[in-house]
Simulated scan of single mutants.
Amino acid sequence: MSMERPLCRIDSALVRQSLPREDNVNNTSLNENIFFSPQKQTLFLQVSNALSQLISEEKWTPGEMLPSETELAKEFSVSQGTMRRALNLLVEKGILIRRQGRGTFVSDFKRNEKLFQRRYVKFVPDDPLTDEALPTTSKLLFFVKVSPPLEIQSKLCLEPQDMVIHAGRALLASSGLVTFDEIWASETVFSKLTEENLMKHEEKLLYSFYQSELGVSIGRVEETIKAALLPSNLCFMFKLPDPTPVIEINRLAYSVNDKPIEYRHQLCVTRKYHYTVSGQFEDNVEF
Score class of each variant (00 low, 15 high):
Ile218Lys: 06
Leu252Thr: 12
Val285Ala: 09
Thr276His: 09
Asn33Gln: 06
Lys239Ser: 14
Glu92Cys: 04
Ile218Gln: 05
Ser77Cys: 12
Pro38Trp: 02
Phe190Thr: 02
Thr224Lys: 02
Leu206Gly: 01
Asn49Pro: 00
Glu286Trp: 12
Asn88Asp: 13
Gly101Cys: 05
Trp60Val: 01
Arg102Glu: 15
Lys139Ala: 05
Pro243Leu: 01
Ser56His: 07
Leu72Ala: 03
Glu71Asn: 08
Gln153Phe: 05
Leu177Arg: 10
Pro245Cys: 05
Lys93Asn: 08
Gln53Met: 12
Leu171Asn: 12
Glu262Trp: 06
Phe180Thr: 00
Gly101Phe: 06
Asp131Gly: 11
Thr82His: 01
Glu58Ile: 13
Glu195Lys: 07
Glu58Val: 06
Leu214Tyr: 03
Arg271Asp: 14
Pro62Ser: 00
Lys155Asn: 08
Arg119Val: 11
Glu282Trp: 08
Glu203Thr: 07
Lys226Phe: 15
Tyr263Met: 10
Glu57Val: 02
Thr61Gln: 14
Gln117Arg: 14
Val124Tyr: 03
Asn197Lys: 04
Val221Trp: 12
Gly215Asn: 08
Ser191Cys: 13
Glu69Cys: 15
Arg5Val: 11
Gly215Cys: 09
Arg271Leu: 09
Arg111Tyr: 02
Lys110Met: 00
Val216Met: 07
Asn112Thr: 06
Lys122Gln: 11
Lys200Asp: 13
Glu182Lys: 11
Ser56Leu: 06
Ser278Gly: 01
Leu229Val: 06
Met83Arg: 07
Val164Leu: 12
Cys8Asp: 02
Tyr263Thr: 02
Lys239Gln: 15
Leu267Ser: 07
Val256Glu: 02
Lys122Leu: 15
Val144Tyr: 00
Arg16Gln: 11
His166Lys: 06
Tyr273His: 15
Ser278Pro: 04
Leu177Thr: 10
Leu141Pro: 01
Gly215Met: 07
Thr61Ile: 12
Lys155Cys: 12
Arg169Gly: 07
Val221Lys: 11
Ile183Thr: 14
Val121Met: 03
Thr82Cys: 13
Asp127Cys: 07
Leu51Thr: 03
Pro62Glu: 01
Gly176Leu: 08
Leu7Ser: 12
Glu202Asp: 08
Ile249Asp: 10
Gln80Trp: 00
Leu43Asp: 02
Arg220Asp: 04
Glu159Val: 07
Leu30Glu: 00
Thr136Trp: 02
Leu140Glu: 05
Glu113Ala: 09
Leu115Tyr: 04
Cys235His: 04
Val47Gly: 02
Ala133Phe: 13
Met83Pro: 07
Asn49Leu: 13
Ile10Trp: 06
Gly215Ile: 04
Ala170Cys: 06
Phe105Glu: 02
Thr137Cys: 04
Thr137Arg: 10
Thr28Asn: 11
